[in-house]
């Protein structure tokens, strides 16, 4: 139950029972191959939700996508928290632990959202040092995600250069979030294809895809609250030939529709991946 491949679905409390029930789905194209969860939402959890966690773990491989590591924070890394993460990953035999290339804690206060790290050389070095520390403690690769952001903060280098330097020099892996590329390209008026071409694509170990909300003519918010739009599917389709075969996760955190709608999105992602990676059999 630990090998992550194919197309996965985020494990959310709102759809916990429906997701667990998908283990009995007979059509493989409509069934997630794995689920992803945020360890912070499950660590120390007992009772009813612990039962749900054990049920999902018994039926699907799990990947972990963290929220509170705050890898780019000026504050010290939270080592006791990291040790809890390690213990959780070990308990559920989780082989992929990803986190955001952002910061969510500052001045000893958690903010519970993802703020952009300044694209500067010193921040690159700072993050590299911390990723190495995390990897030493966890004894596994950290998989770092390109995040969506609404303003750059005191930038001195480009976003792609920032990501590439960190990934290649720290020895971590990359989570390529296709929706975030689309959102950032729109919000900051750059070419999404050029951006992807400038990333360390050989180090991509995992992908995310999601929907978003366009709230004005020049701003998209990365809400994970809508279905994936066609241009994002197109960007996935364009990107896949450049990438190693990696697991892809459908993120849906808000405004969650019925499971049939999510399964249709899973199906569409699988149809696209099967064109390029030729591993997933699509029923004609």
């Amino acid at each position: 139950m630990n090998k992550i491949r194919g197309v996965g679905l985020g494990f959310r409390r709102d759809i916990a029972d429906e997701t667990i029930a998908l283990s009995k789905e007979s059509n493989p194209i409509l069934k997630p191959d794995f689920v992803e969860l945020a360890p912070e939402n499950w660590i120390d959890m007992g009772g009813y939700w612990r039962d749900k966690l054990e049920q999902i773990a018994a039926n699907f491989p799990i990947s972990a996508h963290g929220l509170s590591l705050s890898i780019g924070s000026p504050d010290e890394l939270d080592i006791p928290f990291l040790k809890k993460i390690k213990s959780f990953l070990n308990e559920f035999n989780i082989q992929i632990y990803s986190e955001h290339l952002s910061y969510s804690k500052c001045d000893n206060a958690h903010l519970y959202d993802l703020l952009p790290i300044p694209f500067t050389e010193d921040a690159v070095n700072h993050v590299i040092e911390r990723i190495k520390q995390v990897q030493d403690i966890l004894e596994m690769h950290l998989v770092i995600e390109n995040v969506s952001y609404y303003t750059p903060l005191a930038p001195k280098i480009s976003e792609s250069e920032f990501i590439k330097e960190i990934v290649t020099r720290s020895g971590c892996k990359m989570l390529l979030d296709i929706n975030n590329v689309y959102v950032n390209a729109f919000n900051h008026n750059y070419n999404e294809h050029n951006f992807i071409d400038n990333l360390p694509l050989n180090e991509v170990a995992y992908m995310h895809i999601a929907g978003h909300d366009k709230i004005s003519d020049d701003l998209i918010i990365d809400t994970h609250g809508q279905p994936i739009i066609e241009p994002v599917y197109d960007l996935l389709n364009w990107s896949l030939p450049k990438l190693p075969e990696v697991p892809i996760l459908l993120e849906r955190d808000f405004n969650i529709p019925n499971m049939e709608s999510l399964q249709k999105e899973i199906q569409q992602i699988k149809e696209i991946t099967s064109k390029h990676w030729n591993k997933i059999k699509v029923n004609a």
């Binding site: 780019g72 924070s73 000026p74 910061y103 500052c106 001045d107 206060a109 903010l111 959202d113 703020l115 952009p116 790290i117 300044p118 500067t120 010193d122 921040a123 700072h126 303003t151 750059p152 903060l153 005191a154 930038p155």
Partner: peptide
């Protein structure tokens, strides 16, 4: 981290909590 970098981060974080954007110029 250079002081300018950590200061920019602190100012943005502080803004999200307080609404005070004083000195938050590079955003």
């Amino acid at each position: 981290l250079k002081e300018t970098t950590s200061l920019a981060q602190q100012k943005l974080a502080n803004y999200t909590r307080t609404g005070d954007s004083t000195g938050l110029t590079e955003a």
